[in-house]
């Protein structure tokens, strides 16, 4: 990224991005440790290495644009501005969790921040996201939905069904495939929508500015009434499918490191400044984790609430 033009980006913009991405990185690393310690049960799908996608998409979107993601969603939820304390408390199943301890890692929602999950069923976010876009078109309110789909869900029939409907009704939606398969086995997915007249683009998902620029184009296209598009984010996940799997080595493509290098190269900060930011975020995440663990579990009476309104 250092080679990319940074003239358009202010120091404050890049430093805020660095903080946002680093929060996701440290949060996820901590969640991985807590999973290994048995504090997080069930599932824990981490997005270490995918931070640029979460942050870049949000930065390109407007307030009111909806996001919906797969179960690999902690990063997208944090990027939406949800309280990381409530997210961590949910991961450990506590009463102040964002879903009051009843959702878990895959089932977290922040409708007030236009984040609609957290879909535990592979591919479910495709038609549900298409429905969010349908509502935007119905109201004519100029909002766009961003539906985040993993490379696995790209094979789901419900994604194809969503393409049919989104194209037929020209719905304002951007399908984003987070293609995080290892490089040697990674299929090209950008043209998955081609036979439905859905234009696609392959994007370096490890590069914040590339993500942001591609997202801005796709969102603008949808907002102008041109219908759906597909962005394939080519990324590397630095952890296995679920937290329990082995950690991979961080490469030089690491999006956080690339942003760090770009900031230093532009002279927006000194190395020591960025180390200080990192230390601060580490400390904050440690505190968030401690708070979450010390929080009480939900009351027994919570068992029977929130079934029907």
């Amino acid at each position: 990224m250092a080679t990319q033009s940074l003239a358009d980006f202010s120091s404050c913009d890049l430093l805020a991005s660095f903080r946002a991405m680093l929060l996701i990185r440290r949060f996820e690393e901590r969640a991985g440790q807590m999973f290994a310690m048995g504090l997080i049960g069930g599932f824990c799908h981490l997005c270490v290495g995918q931070e640029a996608v979460a942050v870049g998409l949000r930065q390109a979107a407007r307030i009111g644009d909806q996001f919906i993601a797969s179960y690999r969603m902690h990063g997208h939820l944090l990027a939406s501005g949800a309280d990381p304390r409530a997210v961590m408390a949910e991961l450990v199943g506590r009463r102040y969790g964002i879903s009051r301890g009843k959702g878990g890692s895959m089932h977290m929602f922040a409708p007030g921040r236009d984040f609609f999950g957290g879909q535990g069923i592979t591919g479910a976010q495709a038609p549900i996201g298409t429905g969010l876009a349908f509502a935007n078109a119905y109201r004519g309110d100029g909002k766009v939905c961003v539906a985040l789909i993993g490379d696995g869900a790209a094979d789901q029939g419900q994604l194809t069904e969503s393409f049919v409907m989104a194209e037929r009704w020209s719905l304002p939606i951007v399908y984003v495939i987070e293609n995080n398969l290892p490089q040697f086995e990674r299929p090209a997915l950008a043209q998955r929508g081609a036979s439905f007249n859905i234009p696609g683009e392959s994007v370096d998902g490890m590069c914040l500015t590339s993500v942001r620029e591609a997202a801005a184009r796709a969102l603008g296209w949808a907002r102008a009434g041109n219908g759906p598009t597909l962005l394939e984010m080519r990324i590397e996940r630095f952890r296995g499918h679920a937290a329990a799997e082995q950690r991979r080595k961080h490469g030089e493509r690491d999006p956080v490191e690339r942003l760090r290098a770009a900031i230093l190269a532009a002279g927006f900060a000194q190395e020591a400044d960025l180390r200080h930011v990192d230390a601060e975020i580490r400390a904050r995440v440690a505190e968030i984790a401690d708070q979450a663990v010390s929080c009480d579990e939900p009351e027994d009476s919570e068992l029977l609430t929130d079934i029907l309104l």
Binding site: A126, I128, L132, A135
Partner: peptide, 22 residues
Amino acid sequence: VDAPIVEHGFAGLGVGAAFAGL
């Protein structure tokens, strides 16, 4: 709205529209 023959898809679309307040 006449739907294409995609029950899985249009049921999910309905859920999304309901989430959005329709």
